[in-house]
Write a protein that binds this DNA or RNA. Sequence first.
DNA 1: AACTCGTGGCC
DNA 2: TGGCCAAGAGT
Length: 405
Amino acid sequence: MAPLAQPRKTASGESGKAASGESGRSASKDSSKAASGDSSKAGSGGIAPHLLAWYDAHHRELPWRIAPRALASGTKPNPYRVWLSEVMLQQTTVEAVKAYFRAFVEKWPDVEALAAASTEDVMKAWAGLGYYSRARNLKACADLVARRGGSFPDSEASLRELPGIGAYTAAAIAAIAFDRPAAVVDGNVERVVSRLFSIATPLSEAKPEIRALVERMVPDKRPGDFAQAMMDLGATICTPRRPNCMLCPLRADCSAILSGDPERFPVRLPKAEKPLRRGAAFVAVRGDGAILLRKRPDKGLLGGMTEVPTTNWTARVDGATTAAAAPFAADWRRAGQIAHVFTHFALDLDVFQAQVSGDTPAGHFWSLPSDISGEALPTVMKKAIEAAIPGATKKPSPHTAKRPA
DNA sequence: AACTCGTGGCC
DNA sequence: TGGCCAAGAGT
């Protein structure tokens, strides 16, 4: 589907601008800023220079980012840090990633260190960040890279072959770490471009068109900064709700702003309803305070993570099934109830607790109070444990831990 | 090609 | 409050 309006035509920025009858931004203003990202590519003469000038002045400072000034001074990006941050950022907010990124690079400063770690330790460090197959693929990728001498491949195609690196991440690493003119298309870029061109086609269907448009915009110089600039723009100006078009460096190039309602882009298809599943979780507490845990299968939901014993999560609660699913017969008492929402279903869990003598059912293990916070417990499991034993999964602080209550 | 796969913040 | 959505990948 063709865009309703095209701020810049494909073949030539100048003629497209004239044809669409929009203001000629590169002619009317900001010509002084156009030095940095000058591209010889047809049709990209307008966007990249203005975006890069904006990025130079307004970029975010992030723990994994080399600021444009430092980059210009010769500071080289660290591919390991770029890769690690990009994997963490997949479908995950910047704010959530910051602390995990710092913890990972402190614990494993380079890809060899990460390769030397156990998958179990990586899962523990990833706990709480979500999408746990990323952690397993991260470790697998580190192993492969370490085996080839510790250097990441520098081409988009080669990066794409590594576990956990898809189209977006391969392009992002190629552009940011290796200065390759790759078309980096994430959710931010999809939003920015769909607004620039008022793309009325629903997002899933419009992706090839958006990618083609981005490919035309990528400058030969500073492709990594261009990619990060597009994402910063999407994150801080061209936001999903209430975009701040008045501050946008691309407002003169934007078709959606003319419509008066840029927020209606991108167009998305309605999403499926979330079914509700129910189940029960069992928090067995030993005399020394240890809690009974087990490891989930490596694949599937919360794959490879640790959990308290639970029933299957089904549509309805069945008392007999619940009793039979307990790790052993005990004086199970209902300690609470928790609700959790996953990507494609919601979960209500009844939490039962019992004081037990200390038998260890097959496939289970005990975790002492001092160890609980370090286990590979996904958030839903921490919620369940907290419902039975408030504070049990909190990190013991030196202040509170050493003082008797 | 459609599903699966977490979590937290926002309004 | 509940829906929306974030620097997506694997199957």
